[in-house]
């Protein structure tokens, strides 16, 4: 059993969260979701609150390396998990390849769903690399082999992340570029002249 403070009836606990490799100890109301703990308590506001009900994906983070929505994860239940947020995916000043691709290919507009899209995409690429099928996979049997990460596969796997601005086409392009595959939408136009220009 857990520490004795939880053996008596209590509505708050002092917990330690491991976020982006750093430990944070804080008292939390048990009602506090991981999303609110990040945003309201730890000033990690990169994880966004879009619906607070698991219906939009804006709060996607990585829990033990797998994507999850922080709005339905109680903070107190996230102890002992490795939590990675958008603030933790870059390597210092060097953007994660998914971040770089989103930036170069304009994989966003208002930017509010973007951290969730990026964390989700990182999860998608790992899940695909691990051989996980999706609802777009025509034959899920293991002997069929892993499906190629086509645009259709990316779209299905990313569907838990709504983008109301409708930047879906360039998001799919960005995920494909970061994954090192060719999406069918690749265009030659709109090559940015600015810093971090696309090849």
């Amino acid at each position: 059993m857990r520490k004795k403070q939880l053996m008596t009836s209590s509505t708050s606990s002092v917990i330690t969260l491991k976020i982006n490799g750093e430990k944070h100890t804080l008292p939390v109301d048990h009602r506090t979701t991981l999303l609110d703990a990040l945003r309201e308590r730890l000033d990690l506001t990169g994880t966004k609150k879009g619906c607070d009900q698991g219906q939009c994906g804006a709060c996607t983070v990585l829990l033990d390396g797998r994507r999850a929505v922080a709005c339905l994860q109680l903070a107190v239940a996230a102890e002992n998990r490795e939590i990675t947020t958008i603030e933790g995916v870059a390597d210092g000043d060097r953007l994660h390849p998914v971040q770089q691709a989103f930036l170069d290919l304009d994989g966003f507009q208002c930017g509010y769903c973007t951290p969730g899209q990026i964390c989700s995409a990182i999860g998608v690429i790992e899940e695909h690399a691990a051989g996980w099928p999706s609802a777009a996979t025509s034959d899920v049997r293991p002997e069929a082999g892993p499906p190629p990460l086509s645009a259709e596969e990316i779209r299905e796997r990313m569907s838990g992340n709504l983008c109301r601005c409708g930047a879906y086409v360039s998001i799919v392009e960005a995920v494909a570029r970061a994954a090192g595959v060719q999406a069918d939408e690749r265009r030659g136009e709109d090559v940015p002249a600015g810093k971090g220009a696309a090849a």
Partner: peptide, 19 residues
């Protein structure tokens, strides 16, 4: 074509919205 001025802030989570 220019990438967004605030693009880096948006892909790193640094861009702060009203709340």
């Amino acid at each position: 074509a220019h990438t967004r001025i605030e693009g880096r802030d948006k892909v790193t989570g640094a861009a702060r919205y009203a709340g």
